[in-house]
């Protein structure tokens, strides 16, 4: 700290706030800053083209009434203002879908985080070869495309020939022949949750393990010496250190699970029943299922806003908690 005034700023372009004490250096700083902007320019251009332009188009589309006729003929679609939004937001079915999506997201994110934390702790405690084995398995799971893994799970839970039904049926007195897991939306979502959580654990577990392995051993040892239990050590010592990682992992998981699509779509044979529609599926069915492109776009915009609202709220909340500590 004592070298503060002598040392030249290490990374001139970054956000390190110059407090104005070293006025003569200001002029030289303009060039590096310009270089900084130039360096991020390609990224900005690509992002604007790949993400920004479709987003603008999406918003415009949600304000139009585009039907097949305009789509095929290339005629401009009429603008209808917020009529699509009024239809979406005024439909009680939509709010059921939102509620279903929120519940689904909460269950999946909590399960993912809990199981991934467990996996990460096991990895730290395990012997070297075991850790290697777990890592390889996690990466294999991670590498599997969602559609493929969903199809595999579909076969496991198949109505006619599924191995799960056969296995459970081996228990004396249990008849699982031709048990339909998707007949009831709760058990159906159970299977879908299994598929989603199974696929989500690797990334979260490996990220958390990376964080956990950086927690200084001395801190935890000190806690243990002072008589803290394993749970207390984790909650009071390890977790607070890992909080930034948890924040990122939670936000990412929420975003992924909130818009889950592939797993539901494939599990229900591309014909999801109303009780299996989450926001992603609902929007797709409107836009491309029944060709109400503009209505689907409006649902998509509402989804983005909901997610954005949550993310901002959650990150602010986490930052505030961090300050209090």
């Amino acid at each position: 700290m004592s070298t503060h005034t002598e040392a030249p700023p290490t990374a001139p372009g970054t956000a390190a706030p110059p407090d104005g004490t070293v006025t003569p250096r200001r002029r030289t700083r303009a060039t590096p800053r310009l270089i900084g902007y130039l360096l991020i320019l390609p990224t900005v251009v690509v992002l604007a083209g790949v993400q920004g332009y479709p987003l603008v188009k999406l918003v415009l589309l949600s304000l139009q009434d585009l039907t097949q006729r305009e789509l095929f003929s290339g005629l401009p679609a009429p603008y209808v203002g917020f009529a699509n939004y009024a239809r979406v937001l005024g439909d009680p079915g939509f709010w059921t879908v939102v509620l279903r999506t929120v519940v689904f997201t909460v269950v999946n994110v909590v399960l993912t985080l809990v199981l991934a934390t467990g996996t990460a702790l096991v990895m730290r405690a395990a012997s070297r070869w075991c850790r290697l084995l777990v890592t390889v398995v996690l990466i294999c799971v991670w590498a599997m495309p969602q559609v493929v893994s969903t199809l595999v799970f579909n076969w496991l839970f198949d109505y006619e020939f599924g191995v799960v039904n056969w296995l459970i049926g081996l228990v004396p007195g249990v008849d699982m022949d031709n048990h339909d897991w998707y007949a009831n939306a709760v058990s159906g979502f159970g299977v879908i949750t299994l598929i989603v959580v199974w696929g989500a654990i690797p990334f979260v577990a490996i990220t958390l393990y990376a964080g956990i392995s950086q927690v200084p051993k001395e801190l935890e040892e000190a806690a243990r010496v002072d008589g803290a239990s394993a749970a207390q050590t984790f909650l009071r010592v390890t977790y607070p250190i890992l909080r930034p990682i948890y924040t990122i992992v939670t936000v990412l998981s929420v975003i992924w699970d909130f818009q889950v699509f592939n797993q539901i779509w494939v599990a229900r044979g591309s014909k999801p029943e109303p009780e299996y529609q989450t926001l992603g599926v609902y929007s797709f069915m409107h836009a491309f299922g029944v060709n109400e492109y503009s209505l689907g776009a409006a649902v998509a915009v509402v989804t983005v806003l909901l997610l954005l609202g949550f993310t901002v709220f959650y990150i602010r909340q986490s930052l505030r908690l961090g300050e209090i500590d």
Binding site: V50, Q51, Y53, P54, L55, K57, L58, L61, Q259, F261, N262, G280, S283, F284, A287, F288, Y293, G296, A297, A300, T303
Partner: peptide, 10 residues
């Protein structure tokens, strides 16, 4: 998906 779809559509 929606973004890709929207981009494609657009």
């Amino acid at each position: 998906h929606r973004l890709i779809a929207a981009a494609g559509l657009a």
